[in-house]
């Protein structure tokens, strides 16, 4: 993307309008975070392809597998992650309007959602164990554990990045005119939500 390479980073957050809307034609966050996001989306994409292939080879296991999972846990985590994306979007509007305290509050709400996701995932894995489900059960559950645990790790370090952004905000690092770092954390977090939007129906819903 030659256009991206020619964009000076100092210009990324310049002249931000105070109406809460991002500046048109910009690169949200910075170029480095987009290299990371496209790498991660490719990684999740390869996992989804592996899922399709494994399902074609073991159709009976992949028909029966989702019926043994705790769909409620998957559904709750979907609602929690979508809500966390909403909280982060609200935080971005707040910082662009120089409402720093509101921005911090919305980011804490996102942290709450991340913690809720991790707690639900722990309960779900415990529930699986109690029902005799493990990574060795069959091919469906091997793929299920690989995909969902990988996603769980992303939620963990994505939550850590939001905590870092809160700390930086409290140190006065971001403002309406300069919030490139915060925006990078925000778009990375949305990427984690996007991966789950595909993963949830694949693993829990479709037969």
């Amino acid at each position: 993307m030659p256009q991206l390479a020619s964009q000076p980073s100092a210009d990324l957050s310049a002249a931000v309008p105070r109406d809460g809307l991002p500046r048109p034609g910009r690169i949200p966050g910075n170029q480095a975070i987009w290299v990371g996001i496209f790498s991660e989306m490719s990684e999740f994409g390869i996992m989804f392809l592996a899922f399709f292939i494994a399902k074609a080879h073991y159709p009976v296991l992949f028909l029966e597998g989702p019926t043994r999972l705790n769909t409620t846990a998957g559904l709750v985590n979907t609602l929690v992650l979508l809500s966390s994306s909403y909280f982060v979007a609200k935080a971005m509007v707040a910082i662009r309007q120089e409402r720093r305290r509101d921005c911090v509050r919305w980011l804490w709400a996102a942290i709450g959602a991340a913690v809720a996701y991790l707690v639900v995932k722990y309960i779900e894995y415990e529930w699986n164990s109690a029902h005799g489900i493990s990574i060795d059960t069959n091919s469906f559950f091997a793929v299920y554990y690989y995909m969902t645990f990988n996603h769980l790790l992303h939620v963990g370090w994505g939550g850590g990045a939001i905590l870092w952004a809160i700390m930086r905000l409290k140190m006065g690092a971001y403002s309406a005119d300069d919030h490139e770092g915060l925006e990078a954390v925000a778009v990375y977090w949305h990427m984690i939500d996007l991966a789950w939007i595909v993963m949830f129906p694949l693993v829990y819903v479709l037969r």
């Binding site: 993307m1 256009q3 991206l4 809307l21 991002p22 500046r23 048109p24 034609g25 910009r26 690169i27 949200p28 987009w34 496209f38 989306m41 994409g45 979508l82 994306s85 909403y86 982060v88 979007a89 971005m92 925000a186 778009v187 949305h190 990427m191 939500d193 996007l194 939007i197 595909v198 129906p201």
Partner: peptide, 29 residues
Amino acid sequence: VGIKGRLVVDHFMELRTARAPIRHLMNAY
């Protein structure tokens, strides 16, 4: 899945006004 992904990309991720290569790649997913 397609509609939810597009909504998050365009509105929560705020890519509807971002540079075209990033917006198109994310929407293509």
